[in-house]
Write a protein that binds this DNA or RNA. Structure first.
Length: 183
DNA sequence: TGCACGATGAAC
DNA sequence: TTCATCGTGCAC
């Protein structure tokens, strides 16, 4: 298991998003080491992307998205669910990748096929907002053995308000994987 | 200072 | 299809 370096995240967001598929999300908690294989993601391209939170510019909430790559952007949605993103590209770009589903690898209980569900299973909440993903207790790694994968591209979920941006194929998932939120 | 509205999930 | 539930951004 090899931790991803800063340079992995400091690339064009659609590339980072697709390369995150199959990687392991690792979180050291009081309940033990929790690991999930990333099987579904969405790319949010920056300030010009009307579906992205960063389209509102730099605010108290979005400043993490505009920060340096390789950090976690965690926010509360609908007053009850947490969503985890990883910041990508150069500081100031406001781009990130939303992790939407993981396949249980170690110490995960309950469903993991949705952005809120994976955060609950991985014990991720707002306390991890802004956390460096090159840390030892919360990071993403390349597993020892990686299989050959086929990537499916679909429109993003729940962003109909973003007009033409809602039609872009910026949601990526592993073909045939049973842990994807909406195949 | 108040208020409309979610990058959702679960129940009906 | 409806609803729970609250932080954020922006109008006033």
């Amino acid at each position: 298991m090899k931790k991803l370096r800063r340079s992995f995240y400091d690339r064009e967001t659609t590339l980072v998003a697709q390369d995150l598929l199959g990687k392991w999300l690792v979180h050291q908690t009081g309940g033990g080491e929790r690991i999930g294989k990333i099987v579904e993601v969405e790319a949010y391209l920056g300030e010009h992307d009307l579906a992205a939170h960063s389209s509102k510019g730099v605010t108290e909430r979005t400043k993490i998205m505009f920060g340096p790559p390789g950090h976690a952007y965690v926010y509360l949605i609908y007053g009850m669910h947490h969503c985890l993103n990883v910041v990508t590209e150069k500081e100031g770009n406001g781009a990130a990748v939303l992790l939407r589903a993981v396949e249980p690898v170690k110490n995960l209980t309950g469903k993991t096929n949705g952005p809120g569900l994976l955060c609950r299973a991985m014990e991720i909440d707002r306390r991890l907002n802004g956390h460096d993903l090159l840390s030892d207790e919360f990071f993403i790694a390349q597993p020892e053995a990686s299989e050959k994968i086929t990537i499916v591209k679909r429109p993003r979920i729940g962003v109909d308000y973003a007009r033409h941006w809602a039609k872009r194929l910026l949601r990526f998932y592993l073909k045939g994987n049973p842990f994807v939120s909406r195949p």
